[in-house]
């Protein structure tokens, strides 16, 4: 077995093994003590509910996933643009940053109802909220990437009389790419949570809706099944971003 094969197996095997051990402990804890299913359902109960409600849950995941994807795209574009603007002008930076930091300090979950009141009960409110929740990591890491471009490369650009636009796209952006992806990975998970939080405020369908309606009738195992689907959705988006990042790294490193 080659080293890299072994590494690959480890990187898949270890998390799976951890999950299996945790699930076994959980199952044992639930069956050996008299923890009620309403408080903590056993993994087996959860899997049973997952099986029974799979089509409904997948449909809900599709709704939530679509909105999360839209929110994520919005967050990435907005985060990138604000980072680009703030890294190119001190004036803009000093105007925008305090407001954004202040916004970051507000527990945004408390703001979620405002979005519904202002933007209504449709998808726009949820997407906007989730985008707001998730754009900060992209902004901060991209901005730090853009402002940490190799000064030598910037001097090279100046010596070649490159325009600000040229040096931005051909040097600063590629240099900031690893930072950009790092921010995107964090944002991707937050976009999913953001949509679900917004669904808790108002929703006609989706995973947040499924979790709420199941918990309203104390179907805790169904709640857990929906959360499991939610985790899978989040992991899927995260994985897609990570795959994109690997692709970019391949381009970057050759």
């Amino acid at each position: 077995m080659t080293g890299s094969r072994r590494e690959q197996l480890l990187s898949i095997g270890l998390p799976v093994a951890t999950a299996v051990v945790l699930a076994a402990l959980w199952q044992a804890a639930v069956s050996l003590t008299d923890i009620r299913e309403i408080m903590l359902p056993a993994p087996t109960a959860m899997v049973a509910k997952l099986n029974a409600n799979l089509p409904t849950l997948l449909e809900a995941a599709l709704v939530t996933g679509r909105e999360a994807l839209a929110a994520f795209a919005l967050a990435v574009v907005a985060g990138f643009i604000v980072a680009a603007a703030s890294s190119s002008s001190q004036l803009l930076r000093e105007t925008i940053y305090p407001a954004i930091i202040a916004l970051q300090l507000i527990p945004k979950v408390a703001l979620a109802p405002l979005f519904v009141v202002i933007l209504g009960i449709e998808a726009e409110a949820r997407i906007t909220f989730a985008a707001l929740l998730s754009f900060f990591p992209v902004l901060i890491s991209t901005a730090s990437g853009l402002s940490n471009t190799d000064p030598n490369a910037m001097r090279l650009c100046r010596s070649l009389r490159a325009s600000a636009w040229q040096s931005f796209w051909s040097v600063r952006v590629p240099f900031a790419l690893p930072h950009f992806f790092y921010g995107m990975r964090i944002s991707s998970t937050m976009a999913v949570t953001g949509v679900v939080i917004a669904e808790f405020i108002s929703a006609k369908q989706g995973l947040g809706f499924a979790i709420l309606s199941a918990s309203a009738v104390s179907k805790t195992a169904t709640v857990f099944a929906a959360i499991a689907v939610l985790c899978a959705l989040g992991l899927g988006l995260y994985g897609a971003v990570a795959a994109l990042e690997r692709l970019a790294a391949r381009w970057y490193r050759g």
Binding site: D150, N152, R155, S159, V171, P174, Y252, R253, G254
Partner: peptide
């Protein structure tokens, strides 16, 4: 005017 710096300043990608 061509310039060479102390650092080769190649773009890694």
């Amino acid at each position: 005017v061509g310039i060479m710096f102390q650092d080769p300043t190649l773009l890694p990608w």
